[in-house]
């Protein structure tokens, strides 16, 4: 398989790796850029475990060809702020942890765009992240808590 030099900004750092031409963004994050926090759950854009922010937009990284990430900004679960992690851990958002990175990225996106929550509702918003452990209540609780903390921060 042909290779190419892929340069991108990962969690704020510019990096370049030589990667396979047919790789997906998910593959290069995990196996080339040393960022295995992002998980593969289904490989077909169904489960959302591989969610990342691409130029600030929530996407499934298993559906993004690596070459389209050239020159772009990627944020992954590894750059999640510690206070958000604490909030989510107290509410039971994670159990086995395999869907968790994608869930966390969806939550981070929603925190940046709280207006989405108002228009679609939290459960509909989270329906792109399939979880087999929590029954979603722990995830929704985490999301609610995070939105509240965010709103408080915005006030002060």
């Amino acid at each position: 398989m042909d290779k190419f030099d892929l340069s991108l900004t990962l969690n704020g750092k510019s990096e370049t790796r030589r990667v396979a031409l047919d790789a997906r963004l998910l593959d290069v994050l995990r196996y080339d850029f040393g960022s295995p926090g992002t998980k593969e759950g289904c490989g077909e854009g169904e489960c959302g475990a591989c969610c990342v922010l691409l130029d600030g937009v929530l996407v499934n990284s298993c559906l993004v060809p690596a070459f389209q990430a050239a020159g772009r900004r990627i944020e992954t679960v590894e750059s999640t702020p510690p206070d958000l992690l604490q909030t989510l851990n107290a509410t039971g958002t994670s159990q086995c942890g395999a869907c968790t990175p994608g869930v966390v990225m969806s939550i981070r996106w929603l925190l940046q765009h709280p207006e989405i929550a108002e228009s679609v509702g939290l459960r509909a918003f989270m329906s792109g992240n399939l979880c087999r452990c929590t029954g979603y209540d722990g995830i929704i609780a985490g999301l609610e808590q995070a939105l509240q903390s965010n709103a408080k921060k915005a006030e002060t």
Binding site: S35, P36, G37, T38, T76, V77, E78, T80, L85, Q86, L88, N89, A90, G92, T93, S94, Q95, C96, G97, T100, P101, V104
Partner: peptide, 13 residues
Amino acid sequence: PRIDGLDKLAGRA
């Protein structure tokens, strides 16, 4: 709180 929780939430596990 879940002892392994922070590592999982941060993608470190």
